[in-house]
Simulated scan of single mutants.
Amino acid sequence: MQELFDIGVDVAKANVVIAVQDHPELACELVNEPGALRRWLESVPPESRLAVESTGRYHGLLVHLAQQAGLRAYVLNAWDVSMYAKALGMRGKTDRTDSQVIARYIREHHARLHPYEPGSAAQQAIDQLIRQRARVQVKQQSLMRILQDLPALDPQRQAVAQSLQAVIHTMDAQILAWMHSEPALAEPFDRLQTIPGVGVQSAALLTSLLGRIGFTNADALVAFSGLDPRPKDSGQKKGRRRLSKRGAALIRRQMYMCACSASRTPAFKPVYQALRARGLSGIEAMVILARKLLRVAFALWRHQSVFDSERFRPKMT
């Protein structure tokens, strides 16, 4: 029987550094381009485990090619790997040692991890558009703040704002087109928009996420988003709960914006007011409301239903 490898890869824009657990002689460095990666993958036994840290877009090519070659690819949380390296007592940090740590991490922890699921072509396109749209919007807001104190440049500032807004509108149109390109996406996309506070962008994000990852329950979805409270207790001491922030920041940002909108609707305004009446700050109340919206979205997804204010009325406690 052919031995299966546990492979750790440190990915950069220009190159990748590879380590194979228990096989230091197989360590190598490759150019991060399709030809070199394909040739290397041909020498790797199928069903081997390959892990990379999440590096924005740089790891995408390797993960895609690895899955095509029959490997089980894992995209790891960089913070988890960093803490793991510290726990191992690593005395330095290089690309080579990073790849070795990743290889050891996937060997020891693969049983509780899920291989990366890229989703359909439509889901991949939607995910990319949503991420890039968020980045464009942030840059737009930053640029407008920079130029607002320069009255002499008002015409140029308005022209830039209009151009960037046109880009955002084009992205929105493309997201809608992709969403309606597949019935499996279009139907839940329309259902999720029946939730007060959930608009087109949020519904698209949730539809793609829920369609790509098979969450077992609503708690798993909340944990994935990083909106779950993290305990910090020791003995008799009960520490202050803080958000784990383990998932993608885009999800947390989008759900917080949904909560801001939902807090002004008849369905969720009483919930928000009740939370504030308990002495919670506005941000704390919004975070709790964002978690509730995620749970409602999961229920609509699982039961293939639309929002009903009576059925899904959140508890006040």
Rank of each mutant, 00 (worst) to 15 (best):
L129Y: 08
L50A: 04
A204P: 02
E53V: 10
K315A: 15
Q236G: 14
H303F: 05
Y116T: 02
S54T: 08
P118K: 04
A27G: 10
C258L: 11
K269E: 13
R145K: 15
A285S: 14
L41E: 11
K86V: 06
Q100G: 08
L206C: 06
P115C: 02
W40I: 07
D149L: 10
A220C: 08
P45N: 11
V222R: 00
V160I: 15
Q273S: 12
Q124L: 09
V136G: 01
E310S: 14
A121C: 03
W178P: 01
M83S: 08
L210W: 00
S181Y: 05
I7F: 13
P151A: 14
G211R: 05
P115K: 08
A177R: 15
K292Q: 00
Q201R: 13
R242N: 08
F268T: 02
Y58W: 09
A220E: 14
L206Q: 00
H110W: 05
A19L: 04
A204Q: 02
I168P: 04
T317R: 13
D308M: 07
S234N: 10
R313Q: 10
Q128M: 14
A36Y: 05
T194A: 13
Q193F: 11
D154Q: 15
V101N: 02
V160S: 09
L30G: 07
I175H: 06
R246C: 12
S54Y: 03
A267C: 07
I168Y: 01
P229D: 01
P46T: 15
H169Y: 06
H23Y: 06
E29K: 11
L205Y: 03
R191T: 07
V136Y: 07
F307M: 07
I106M: 08
H109V: 07
M179S: 09
R112F: 06
M83F: 07
Q2H: 10
S48E: 04
A78C: 04
A297F: 06
A186R: 10
G211H: 01
I168V: 13
L147V: 10
M257N: 12
T170R: 11
V222S: 01
R91S: 05
W301D: 00
V11D: 00
P115T: 05
L206D: 01
A203G: 06
K139L: 05
Q254W: 04
L294Y: 00
L65T: 11
R276Y: 11
V138W: 07
D219N: 14
G56W: 04
A51S: 10
F268G: 00
L26A: 03
G214L: 07
I146C: 06
R302G: 00
R104T: 01
S234D: 06
A177V: 03
L300D: 00
R212V: 05
V222F: 01
S263I: 06
I130L: 15
L209F: 04
N77Y: 01
I168M: 05
Q158L: 15
P45T: 10
G8V: 04
I251D: 01
R57A: 13
P151F: 13
A290Q: 05
F215N: 01
V167I: 08
D190W: 11
Q165P: 04
Q67S: 12
S163T: 10
Q124C: 06
D6R: 15
L50V: 09
V17L: 03
F268Q: 02
Q137R: 09
L176W: 09
K315H: 14
